[in-house]
Each structure stands twice: as C-alpha cells, then as structure tokens.
Nucleic acid binder design. Structure first.
Lengths: 96, 96, 96, 96
DNA sequence: ATTGATCACACCTTGC
DNA sequence: GCAAGGTGTGATCAAT
C-alpha cells in the first residue's frame, strides 16, 4: 500500500484545509444570499422576481463580455492598422 | 401597473447590490477551490481521491450510513451477486 | 481536389451507414437503461443505490482497491483528521 | 437495518440484470463503432474526416427534427382550419 | 425543473 | 506508431 512521506503529508493537510476553508466561505456567501432574500420577502418583495432580475443582469453582463471579446479580437486583427487613418475607419466599421 | 415609491426603490437597489456582491464572493470561493485542486494535481496528487476525502468529511455521518445500509441490503438481497453475468466475470478476475 | 472512384464511394457509404446504425443501437441501450431506472424508481427503489451497485460490480476490483488505498493513505497521513476544523465538527456531531 | 422481502428481491435482481445487459449492448455498439473506423483507416480513409461527416449528419438531423416540430406546432395551431380552402393557404405560408 | 459541478468516456495532440 | 495529458461531450448529482 502506498504511503505518504512527511513532506507530502504536510502538503496534503494544507490542501484539505484550504479547500474546507473555501467551502466554508462559499457556504457563508450562499447563506448570506438566502438571508437577503428572506429579509426582502419580509419587506413585501416578490423573491422570484428579484431572482429573475439578478439572473437577467448576470446574463447581460456575460453577453457584454462576449461582445467585448469579439471586438477585442477584431481590434487585435486590425492591430497593425490602428494608427493609420484608413485603419481607424476599419475599426469603426468593425465595432459599430 | 404597479410602481415603486422612492423608499422601496432604494430598498430594491440595496437588495440587488447585496446579492450580487455575495454571488461574487461565492464564485471567488469556487474558483479558489478549483485552483487548489489544480495546484494539487500539478504536485502529483490524485484529485479524485482528494475530493473523496473532503466529501467524506463533510458528509453527515448519519446520511452516509443510511445510504450504505441500503446498498448493503441490496447486495445482500442479491445473494452476493454470484449468479449474475458480471458477478461471474468479477469473480473470475478476482481469482485469476 | 481529390475525387473518390466508384469503389471507394461505395465503401464510404457503407462505413457511414454502419457507424450510424451502431450509434442508434448505442443510444437505444442508453435509453433503455434510463427507462429501467425510471421504472425502478416508480417501484420505490433508491435509484442512487442501484447505480452504486451496478458501478461497484462493474468496477475493476483492482482499480477500486487502488483508489481505496490512496484514500486510505491520505486519511492516514492526516492522522485521522482530528486537528482540522471540519474534523472537529464531524466528531462533535458523531458524539452528540 | 432494512431488509428486502422476497418479492422485492426478485425485482431487484431483474433490475440489475437488465441494466447490466443494456450496458453490455451499449459497450458492444461502441466497440463496433471503433472497429468500423479502424477498418476504414486500414483502407486508407481519413478517420477524422469520417467522424466529421457523421457529426454533421447528426446535427443536420437534429436541426431538421427541430424544424419539423415547429411546423408541427403550426399545423396543430391551424388544426381546425386544415380542411378549409383558406386554411390550406395559411398552412402553405407557415411551412414554406 | 432548472442550473452548476462533477464524473466518465472518447477524442485529440504532443513528445518519444 | 504509442503512451500521456488536455479537451469536449453526455450523464449524473446536488441544490435551488
């Protein structure tokens, strides 16, 4: 059967501790979210609608990011043209 | 259509901001976990085994026991599996 | 551009047909498995446990043993986990 | 610990047998696919290209199915008109 | 029922 | 050509 040397043993302990620490943080964040919604509900808000808003905003952010990456790639492709007048025009067309 | 007064509007803004802040923290924690495992893998650890350790430690002892008892009872009901094709094959391999 | 003679064309057709036929069979088998589990669930069986049984039986005994030895050695290297936060908590729960 | 009565025991055995039988079929199909490609390779075909063809044909089939479902829903929506002259015209427009 | 994470498997690619 | 590591896909699982 395989055995772990003292060095690996320390590493292992560190890994487990770090993961468990992070999982606690993750759970804390999730609990916080639940709390916020619970409080909102107590103040008369429609929690389902709130979740829908958050969801939509996240999707919007993703879409924006995606778009910016495309623009980015265009910019890069046009890179060597960027400081010339006609290059400027091309960039304008690509990002319009 | 329903409208929100200035007060509720402020509340709403606060709710969304708090949730989004917490979701960022949650994501950061998850990313951190992935990073730790990736690093561990780079150091030669068996990530699957690491996950098994964390899971085992997290798992409610009761629930785990329950699951294992069900599996156990099924195994028992199958008479140690000896009369099923794959069971035969497994036995062959084990005794080869 | 490369062209296929009549002979190769026939071969090609045969290859595609055979692969697609086999992929249909594969999918049918997968669907059948899902059906069996769904039916079992309807009869009150714990599907997760059933999957665990099948998995355990399928698993190469060697490989399973290997995995468990790694987990084992990790557990051992952690000195039975007693000095980690979640380990403490688990002990608390177990002895409550 | 939970025990299974004789009736359930029979059911359980049947479930496991059926699943394992289906998994064998699934594996046989997968192996057959690999064999076909291997044979094709031996006959000078580019396996990667063959896979691409099969993949594209599957995608096409899915797209077609999707399209037909939409048509189907239109047909259904127009259902009560289907046997009247003007209804026929509407269906033609919807499925064009 | 929906979503995100994990897992298993087949595939591809790189290095030898 | 093969073995090994990375990638992608489909299924399962957990949490919501």
């Amino acid at each position: 059967m395989s055995e772990l040397g003292g060095n690996s043993r320390e590493q292992l302990k560190s890994i487990i501790e770090r993961v468990e620490r992070l999982e606690e943080e993750k759970k804390a964040a999730q609990d916080g979210i639940s709390d916020v919604y619970a409080e909102a509900k107590g103040n008369g808000f429609d929690v389902k609608a709130l979740r829908a808003i958050v969801k939509r905003r996240k999707q919007d952010a993703e879409k924006l990011k995606e778009h910016e990456e495309i623009v980015e790639s265009y910019m890069h492709a046009l890179g060597m043209l960027a400081d010339l007048p006609l290059g400027q025009a091309a960039i304008q067309r690509a990002t319009a």
